[in-house]
Design a protein around this nucleic acid. Structure first.
Lengths: 292, 292
DNA sequence: ATTCTGTCTTTTATCTACAATAGACAGATT
DNA sequence: AATCTGTCTATTGTAGATAAAAGACAGAAT
């Protein structure tokens, strides 16, 4: 296999969703926009939809013949891109399984284990190296530096510098900047989840990422925004891995977020800095606790 | 060709250097250490040295028969690793040649132009993307974001945050830390070059990199140290590209460095911050001037 | 006049193969 | 006892090939 057709399968599944609530489909370029794929892929999807009797397709006419059933969808295992599979597999190995700092990482072995070619693994490792968890010895193996307390401290040190500056910049966004509306929406979602926290505390992880990314974007600095990727991936896998006291931790963080958001809305620099510092401090403590 | 033997050729050339001042060579593992290569490569070098009649080799005996001549060395074009070649070639294209922001970057075309396979170009682009000058559209081309004033401002903003913090940390290094001795050596070299600045101002570029890296390392933060790569590459190619007033600019920067170094040596936080800010400000101005 | 479809070309993502390089181990040498 | 060499194996770096996906263009349909 030269290339997996995951783009096709994923877009196909999303297209079935469109098809649930409508009795005909838009034009090919329009569908391409909706699904975020090229016309070539759209046509492949339409061809398959016709083959399995979901639509009748003739030039501009794409009439829905029946509603899609569960069996029409491609299984979710087949819709993940190779890089997602490699990332998950790798993160599981280094976060969960006894991965000692200093351990060697073998491209060929990783590739065999994941069931993929070495090229993809190499490219993943190169991309991943910017997260500071692995390092290359040229002409030789990669070395795992490990998810250690030092790593967490270095990460949070930079994060705190960047976020304090971004939060300060946020206050100076013009009043009609869309970020203010987004901030309102995020605040509302916080209150909604907090009102039913016992059932919905798991939604925090995603909300957390959205909120902090919004703050970082106010810096209008690509290096600051890009750095947030590292924080996001660390917290993302960290939440999946460490679930002790999750409900309580998340509730507390959401309260802090609300105070932080209120400070931003006040535009008062001192208030913003205080609320931001308080939240960052507890976020750092949470992360550090879970490592030891 | 599956792999260029540039490691062999480069190590071979360096081995000829060792051979100039000695009438026999060390053991294989020892040579491997000196040259920074594996025993396999050392043995390949010894084999070649024997073939061209430079040494007589029998087990532990590696007697030098004659001094190497210029013809024994591999030409320097053959000793650069593929990634260095690609980097230079790429930087020339985007800094020198009319490379408009928003331009598409084509892997295949780049590969053909450089005379290499696509795999290496891809890997280079992935590594290079962390410098914030290019961006990938998945399943599609890369986009050149360009060496624009915005880029320079975003870069220097982060640089200033990081360097101020690193400089402050430098003052707290223990008195017996090797960085103090290195700082002295760097200061001495500054004075030496300044004393003959008309002839030696070109040595500044390398010295500049060494000095700022030393400062950044005092942060003991991998993200801060890694970020310095971006600054170093930008200034490196920038110096090569823009030579107007180079002598004067470099002389001024060296004076600033000396004041900055003196401030570090004083361990006085206020003095350090002042000298650091002054230098960073003029470095930023120099960079910005050359872009427009 | 604009938007769409049919068809074709180009480019990316990924696999496989292979030379260069690293590295392991046993027996030889000091 | 420690270090070295001869030999062998394992891994990386890179090229080349191929299916998937993107994208270009002309003619057809609104």
């Amino acid at each position: 296999m030269a290339k997996q057709n995951t783009v096709f399968k994923d877009a196909f599944n999303r297209c079935l969703g469109l098809l649930e609530n409508s009795d005909s489909l838009a034009s090919e370029p329009e569908l391409g926009n909706q699904l975020g794929v090229s016309r070539t892929t759209v046509r492949a999807i339409l061809t398959r939809l016709e083959e399995i009797g979901l639509i009748e397709w003739s030039k501009r006419r794409k009439a829905v013949l029946r509603k899609p059933s569960a069996a029409d969808y491609f299984p979710t295992e087949e819709t993940d891109s190779l890089s997602e599979i490699i990332e998950r597999s790798f993160m599981r190995r280094i976060l969960a399984g006894g991965a000692e700092p200093g351990m060697q990482i073998n491209e060929l072995e990783l590739a065999r284990e994941i069931g993929t070619g070495t090229t993809s693994v190499r490219e993943f490792l190169i991309r991943f190296s910017r997260f500071g968890l692995i390092e290359k010895r040229p002409n030789s193996h990669w070395v795992l530096k490990g998810f250690t307390p030092e790593f967490a401290l270095e990460l949070t040190e930079v994060r705190e510098m960047f976020e304090l500056r971004s939060a300060a910049a946020f206050a100076h966004l013009p009043n009609d900047h869309p970020a203010w509306a987004e901030l309102d929406a995020i605040a509302a979602l916080h209150r909604e989840i907090l009102a039913d926290v016992d059932n919905r505390y798991r939604e925090f992880s995603e909300l957390d990422e959205k909120f902090h990314l919004l703050v970082h974007q106010a810096s209008r600095n690509r290096f600051i925004v890009d750095f947030y990727d590292i924080i996001a991936i660390v917290f993302h896998y960290h939440y999946q891995w460490n679930k002790t006291n999750a409900r309580q931790r998340n509730a507390r963080a959401m309260e802090e977020h609300l105070a932080y958001i209120e400070a931003l809305q006040s535009r008062d620099p001192a208030k913003i800095e205080g609320a931001c510092r308080r939240h960052l401090k507890s976020a750092r403590e949470t992360l550090l606790q879970s490592i030891n």
